[in-house]
Structures are given as C-alpha cells and as structure tokens.
Nucleic acid binder design. Structure first.
Lengths: 344, 344
DNA sequence: ACTCGGTGTGACAACGTTGTCAGGAAACTA
DNA sequence: TAGTTTCCTGACAACGTTGTCACACCGAGT
C-alpha cells in the first residue's frame, strides 16, 4: 500500500502535474482525452492521478467552458412521492442520462411561492433547462429566461402568462371516450367528479364529459357534476352523498386518481360496488386486483416525460425554434369490470 | 417598458457594475447582503441588477468559496419510479431544502457498474454528500472519498467493503413479530418467500422468520422456504406451486412488496384468499381495499430518509465523527384481515 | 493642526479548469 | 544543408465570483 495523501482537501490538477512532473495543461489534456499527448506523459499522468485519487472538478470545468452549460436539468414536480411525478422523473432521468445530464428535482406541493423560489434557485445553478409541472399561478416571471435561451418545458398542465413548449395528455378525448363507453352501456345518469377547475387538466376532462353527453343528446343533471374535489376523503364523502341522494347516478366518472380511490371506498362502504359503474382517469397500482377491477383512462406518463425531455434538448441544440409547441399524448382506455356494469 | 438587454448571454456582475457605475466588488457586496454598503450605492446596484435581470452564477460562486461546497446532495436509488425510492427521495428532499440544499438523484436499477459511474459523476459534481441505496456489489471504491471527508450514508441495505453510516429498518424484528403473530393464531405450517439472499434485507427477514419459528419450537419444512424470488410473476408461480403441493402451508409470509402482490394474485387465482393467511413485508397502496385486506409490516420510509439526511449533515458539520453508525428504524405491524385467518 | 479609528469603496488575486498561442524538437521536403 | 511542416508541450489568460488588503474620506480626540 503506497502512502497516499488522504487528508482533507481533494487533489487538483496542479498536484497531479507536480507529481507527474508535467504542466497542468498536460494533465488537463490527458484527463479530457485530447489526442496530442505522448504515450509516455500520458501514462505518467494517469499513474499520478490514480495515486492521488484525482477526480476532475466538474464545477470549475463548467465555469471555464461556460458555453457547454452544466449538463444539468431542473425538474419541478407536484410531489415526488406521488406515482405520477415519480414516473415522470424516471422518464426524464433516462433521457437525461443517455446524454450525460444529471437531474435535480424538487417538490412544489402546489405552492406558487415555492415554485418561484425553486425555479430561481435552479436557474442560479445554471441548469441547462427546466421542466415544470406548473401550479395554477402565473408564470410570466420565466419569460425573460426563455428569451435568453434557457429551454423551459411545461408538463401535464398549460402554464398561464407565458408561451412555451407544453406536453400533456389528451385529457378531453380520454374523458370523452370513457363517458361515451358508459353511455354505450345504456347509462343516462352519469356523475362527474373532478378536481379544482383552475387546474387545466380537470377542466379539460369535464369538457370531455360534456362532449360525450352532448354527443348522445343527453343533458347532464347539474347536481351530478361535482367539482373542486381535491382529496380522496372529500371524494368519498361526495360520492356517498350522490349515491344516497334521491336520484342517484347509475355510473360514476372520476376524473383523477385520488377521486377514483375515494369513490371505491364509498361504493364499498355502501356495498354498491357491483351495482354502480365506475370509470376513472389515471391508472393506479392494483386497480386490477380490486373487486370489481376498476376501469380507467391510462396516461402514458413515460412517454410524456420522454417527449418533454426531447423537446427540451431540441430547443437547447437549436433544432427547434419559434413559438411554444403544445404536444398532446394519447391516452388509453383500460376496460375492466367496473366499467361494464349496466344501468339498473 | 425599458429597453433591456435580452439577448443570449446572461448578465454578469461586471455588467451590473458598469451600469450602476460602481466596482464589481460592490455589486458582490450588495448581492450577498454584506453590511458595509451605503444606501445610495445599494439601491443603484439593485436597480441595475433588476433592469438587466441579473441572477448570480451559483457555479462561479461555489468555485470561489470552495470551502462551502455546492450545497447539493447526491442520491442513488434503485428506481425512482418505485414507491419506496420515491418516498425516500421526498424525505431527503424535505430535509435538504430546509438547509438550502438541492438534491440530484438517479436510478441504478441494481446495476453495479452504473452505480459506480453515477457515484463518480456525482462526486465530480462536488456534491456535499451522497446517500446510496446500495447494490449487492462491493463499495470499497468509495472508501477514499469517505476518508477525504465526503459524508456517505447508506440506506436500506448494508454496503460491503466499507464502513459507513447506514440507516435501515428493523427487518429481523419486523419479520419475526409478523411470523410470531401467525404462530399465535395456531399456524404451524408457514411458508416464507423472499428476494435474493445476497440482499441483506432479504436475509435479515428470513432470519426473523427462523427466529420466530425456533422461538415456538417449530422446525420449518425446508420446502416452505422459497428464496431468490425477484418479481411478482415469479412470486405468483411459486405461491401457486406451494398451495398445490401435497403439504400446502396454512399461512404465507411474503418478505417484500412485489412478492406479496404475486401471492395475492395466486391466492385469488385459486380462490383461496379467505382460507390461507397472508402477512407481507412493506405497505403498499390500497392494501386495505383488497378482499381480504392485506396485513403488512410497514417500514417508516419517511423517517429512514430524514434520519439518513440528518446523519449526513451531522457528519458534514463535524457534529459526528468516528466509525460508521448503524441505525435501525422500527417497523410497525399493520393488522388486517388476511393476517387473522386461522389454520384449517 | 495632527493623529486616530471607523467607514465605505475598489484593485487585485485566487478558486480549478480549459482555450489560445507560442515555441522547441523531430521529421520531412527541396 | 537549410527551410518547412508536424508534433508535442507549457505559459498565460480567462470563466464569474469572493476574500484580502489598501486607501480615501470623515468626524473625533488631543
């Protein structure tokens, strides 16, 4: 075992150079695998570097070649612990890693203020691009950054106050098709339960519901349209109230993950899960193991993430310019028994 | 609207200084809120900065005050898309943000080589610390880094070939208590299904199973101990085979998430879910909505993450020194009906 | 008037790296 | 043999920022 300087500070190129008896620039050349270095010096440098445990300082390197950027992407999510966000992160990470980029992510928890702080912090860290699942607030504060050439892509929801690339699901079409399927089974009294209408995905899904109903010549009872449902607890209560009302619906369309779960709980509680049809938006783990298995509109989250990252890299490399592109990713109806229950 | 330089390059302190008619150092002082600046210059600088849309370059700042570090944590996970990893990330992110740290994360997918590459890459990026959910391989290559003072904390599994802080669940105790509970119901023939035995958590859980059996004076039938089950598909097949064997167990202990789900599928397929008891390790979404609801040993993932981050910061700030600490976080038995089925 | 201490400001170097350029040695051409 | 090209190497400046230091100014104490 050789005596190696193992104390506090990390070795720098200067120290490697001294040990190898060459100039610091030669070390730089070897580390960066530039061609014009003699085999002799090359191996001297590599030996010295290995002995010292030298590791290049990415920060310094980045500063010097300021053109190249930090090879880092910033990602602002609703909440990483939620499966949608986690899958999105994974998709983006995969695309980023393929190009040698790292991803820094953070959870915004629907807090405007925090989103602002975090995006500023990430921009200060010189990220090469930002992918944001936006809150309901205004995003004009990012306009200057976009003009300066930092690519910013929004995912899932459209941002307000700024024109930028956006990737989201075909919410309207997915909801419309699911509701049309229920209508096809003979349902006429179909309830809609959705999140805050300020959230663009929620209102698009409601729009899809309305189109399906209108397309069949049905006028939905306003009492059956419940909006601003934001948690599974609220959803459970709302569904319970609907089912116990005078004119209970024969089918439910739940426009989001947690709402679907709340609905399952409510149906279970009243033992009506085999009598009232249920179609949800968003796939969730084990939906097929419930009894009855729950039919859902599934989003292709992985593709959304990959597309967003792709757009970002295209912008960065100048392959794409001009106004923001708005890409819609198709959804898929997953037919399961809860969606096949006929009206009573 | 004033004419602002909105072209390509980001403005630097130099440009702010020129516009404000002060020295670059004064700009630095204002931006960093150092006290000794006259109100007059202060406001001039702030105006100029706002007009140019100046944002400090964190990279350059970091390089100069090399002591402080990059205020970045690196996190290597099995796979962010998996709920355990996502919760862990969230817990660590929360602790990190409270101190102004950012988190870069990446998925290793049980690939030794990738883990190595990623940890090198993160260290090159001068992260202030690394939190790793280790693969089964040897981690000696990180030893020098630890000696140099970069805090590294391992989570969930113990690393091989290195002494470092580790945070994981009380796997043995959790498994032991769950199996003891089944024994308390009168079960004598209890199957164990676990992941690869090279994974420390899996072998600890098997150990817990053995201790519970031995504690009750039972000698487990070797046929009932199935190891190296690594996916829900394999688990489903294995459970099916067990249940159709000559001496089927009256209870199952499934030592991991996916195995539990596979077991549920197998029991369902044979319509035996109400006759064979099931206790799983790891909570999973909707476990309470299945029929029967599935009893599990729940890990406190959030606390694991927070503890790991806490250890890391303690090391970094010198509040903790010396050999690696091995912290075990208690688990909790979540009693549900699948765990209350008596033997036939 | 003369030193003193305090306050505000800026010049300069440095963080670790890489781009630019110049120069020496070796290999080629005329 | 002299001139040219090629190859390899190193000195130096620069990326954007901050720590150190020196200095100019002001009011106060002798």
């Amino acid at each position: 075992m050789t005596t190696m300087d193992t104390q506090g500070a990390r070795p720098t190129m200067r120290e490697v150079a001294k040990l190898a008896g060459v100039s610091i620039k030669t070390v730089s050349r070897v580390i960066n695998e530039e061609p014009a270095v003699s085999e002799e010096l090359r191996s001297k440098v590599l030996t010295a570097a290995a002995q010292l445990g030298y590791r290049p300082n990415f920060t310094a390197s980045t500063l010097r070649r300021s053109a190249g950027g930090t090879r880092t992407l910033g990602l602002l999510l609703k909440d990483v612990a939620n499966p949608f966000s986690a899958s999105l992160l994974r998709a983006i990470e995969d695309r980023a890693r393929a190009r040698g980029y790292a991803v820094i992510s953070a959870s915004v928890d629907e807090d405007d203020e925090r989103e602002r702080e975090l995006s500023q912090a990430f921009l200060s860290r010189q990220v090469d691009g930002l992918i944001i699942v936006p809150t309901a607030g205004n995003h004009g504060y990012l306009a200057r950054e976009v003009e300066r050439g930092t690519p910013i892509v929004f995912v899932d929801r459209a941002p307000a106050g700024i024109d930028a690339d956006t990737v989201s699901s075909q919410n309207l079409e997915g909801a419309r098709d699911a509701v049309a399927h229920l209508i096809g089974l003979g349902h006429r009294s179909i309830a809609f339960l959705g999140d805050y209408m300020t959230i663009s995905t929620a209102s698009e899904r409601l729009q899809g519901y309305r189109e399906a109903m209108a397309g069949a010549g049905l006028v939905p009872d306003p009492e059956l349209i419940v909006t601003d449902v934001h948690s599974d607890v609220v959803a459970e209560q709302a569904v319970r109230a609907l089912l116990l009302s005078r004119q209970p619906p024969t089918a439910l369309f739940t426009a989001q993950n947690l709402i679907t779960i709340g609905a399952v709980r409510a149906l279970r509680g009243l033992d009506m899960q085999h009598r009232v049809a249920l179609f949800g938006f968003d796939e969730f783990l084990l939906s097929d193991l419930l009894d009855p298995a729950v039919a859902v509109v599934e989003q292709d989250i992985y593709r959304i993430g990959q597309t967003a990252a792709g757009l970002l890299f295209d912008r960065k490399e100048g392959l794409r310019t001009g106004p923001g592109e708005h890409i819609r990713i198709p959804t898929e109806l997953i037919m399961r028994s809860s969606g096949e229950i006929p009206p009573v």
